[in-house]
């Protein structure tokens, strides 16, 4: 039987991820259509498209933050770290631990290293947009840390695939840091009529 209420998770995502003055009208339209017989799948599809459109709009409007994340994630010498004797010793110790402790330790060690880089870059970003306060820093960092750990968890599975060295060191390994930094900057982004001007001046 079809529920009289639309999927609450989808509504929550719509309210929190799609900003702008059209958001309320859009949410009302979706509710109106749902009450007139549209399915939950239709509702999810509409929310998904709205989020995608909002995200691509943000990317276009704030391309400079994306460029910043690309520069930061490209600057980390992953191959050098991987081949260093300190890392080799640590890695050898970690893989000797019983599973899944070894998995958690490897993710934690790698995430801790990247988190240091991320915090420095994120602090610089907050300073540049003149929004450095404890709340913004905590929220952005928390979201970024979750994303970073999830990204590094998926990397552990990707490592089992036979991928080329170049692809792994220069693209895939950098993705968790890139996406977590983008996410942190997106979460604390300035919104409202002066948002684009603020970002541009930064």
């Amino acid at each position: 039987m079809r529920s009289s209420q639309p999927p609450s998770v989808a509504t929550w995502l719509l309210e929190h991820l799609v900003h702008g003055e059209e958001n309320e009208a859009l949410a009302g339209d979706l509710l109106e259509e749902f009450s007139q017989g549209r399915t939950a799948a239709w509702y999810w599809y509409q929310v998904f498209v709205a989020i995608l459109v909002a995200f691509s709009k943000e990317l276009r409007a704030r391309w400079i933050t994306i460029l910043f994340a690309v520069i930061v994630s490209s600057a980390v010498p992953y191959e050098l770290i991987w081949r260093s004797s300190e890392f080799e010793r640590l890695f050898t110790w970690v893989i000797r631990l019983p599973w899944p402790v070894s998995l958690f330790f490897s993710i934690a060690c790698w995430s801790a290293l990247e988190a240091g880089i991320l915090f420095v870059a994120f602090t610089a970003y907050l300073g540049a947009i003149r929004r450095f306060d404890l709340r913004s820093f905590s929220i952005g960092s928390l979201v970024a840390l979750v994303a970073l750990n999830l990204g590094n968890l998926s990397l552990n599975f990707l490592m089992t695939l036979q991928l080329s060295r170049f692809l792994f060191f220069y693209v895939i390994w950098r993705l968790p840091l890139f996406f977590s930094l983008v996410l942190a900057m997106w979460v604390v982004r300035p919104t409202g009529p002066h948002a684009e001007a603020t970002t541009r001046s930064a």
Binding site: G20, E22, L26, G28, E32, S35, V49
Partner: peptide
Amino acid sequence: ALGSVYATLERLQKKGLVSSSLGEPTAERG
């Protein structure tokens, strides 16, 4: 998709080709 329609309307508004006004809130629309 409604999201695409609203994104286009927002763009047209910025270009000054479309204007908008708010109606009354209704219970059907939460």
